[in-house]
Design a protein around this nucleic acid. Sequence first.
DNA 1: CGGCAGCTTGATTGCTGTCAAAACAGGTGG
DNA 2: CCACCTGTTTTGACAGCAATCAAGCTGCCG
Lengths: 217, 217
Amino acid sequence: MQHQVVENFTPTFVPPITKTPTHLGRIHPEKTPLFHQGDPSKYFYKVRSGVVMTYRLLKDSQRQITGFCTAGDFLGMTSDGIQHDTAITVTTCNIVRLTRAEIQADKELQQELFTKTCLQLEEAQDMMMTLTKKSASEKVAAFLVMLANRQKSETNEADIRLPMSRQDIADFLGMSIETVSRRLTALKSKQVIGLPSRHIVHIFNMGALKKLAGARS
Amino acid sequence: MQHQVVENFTPTFVPPITKTPTHLGRIHPEKTPLFHQGDPSKYFYKVRSGVVMTYRLLKDSQRQITGFCTAGDFLGMTSDGIQHDTAITVTTCNIVRLTRAEIQADKELQQELFTKTCLQLEEAQDMMMTLTKKSASEKVAAFLVMLANRQKSETNEADIRLPMSRQDIADFLGMSIETVSRRLTALKSKQVIGLPSRHIVHIFNMGALKKLAGARS
DNA sequence: CGGCAGCTTGATTGCTGTCAAAACAGGTGG
DNA sequence: CCACCTGTTTTGACAGCAATCAAGCTGCCG
């Protein structure tokens, strides 16, 4: 866990800074925790760049990844002042930490926080659909499409980065690591994607992938 | 869709009115829609009493129930001004409709809305855990426990009302109606619950039920 | 009484989880 | 540079849970 500040991470797009807070964001290396499940919630965090994941642990050390946050997303919202999940950077991240007072003081920022919280709620509800109605293949395809969208790769063919591990994907989609692997290789044999390396997916046919993702809403 | 004001619904508990808005709530009969998926979002709604459910439909008419709202919960939050799900009363409900201006004007109400939105987000994330990590039996047990909690039945033995249909439960828990039925009768044979009528569950042993619900967080 | 909708029960299939082992990548030290 | 080690990913074999299809059952209402 050496805290080397690696600045050669590849920012595929410029974070849309709608508001410039007082403090400039801090750079967090990959796999750095922001807060832990059970911590008192003192701050809000706004992601400027990079990927943060939040997860929840159960007694038997089972894990549910509740979301991946990218540029523009907020973290640390809670109804009771206690963090319900742990947040940890997946990649190197630029993150702004905001106090409650700072939010209160800034009407516009407050509005943005509320809107983003609503968005996260919608995404969580979409996820409920994914978890219950989609097959394993559809889940994996949908996950890749989501990543592509977040990386603004709207072209029909694109390389996307998978910074998280297979286990992370499994814990997000609610399936076993083996099934994730199998479905990925299945997509590969179908010529829809290529897997040049473990953390890179080349999408040959975005249209086909989206069909397989079964976006039926 | 006759708006008859039926006042003989059974209020099992007094709604905790933390804030008294300008308008008194309106009574909505059961199965009355508040808004539909795709509608522009003009208002927020605050539930005073009764049960409202929200759901999302897919092209192939599959349905995911995203939540059941009871006294104190808000509806109508959205990130883009469009409703992402449909809200419909399950029972007769008392509901306050609030404009955005009214929320803006009232600092305290605004705070309450935000807190409740965070709570809904947490609940949605808890639901993700339930959907992925729990077996069918655990899901059904957990659902009954949730209902008992909302109906403030904290005693070890209690009658709880199941106002929604088996299909609703299935669409909430992400399983088939047959499995819901089977798991309920399994709980009955285990003497943990009784099923005096279709919409009433008698809990014989809340402790056992909670164990079966597998609350491992 | 008949009809209908919702619910329960039964039989069967198949997807996905589990266990197990092999392949692979990345890092370390000789 | 190679051998080795370790953790991750892939592949394989198998079992089990829950979905599906299908048939009865119950309560309700005309």
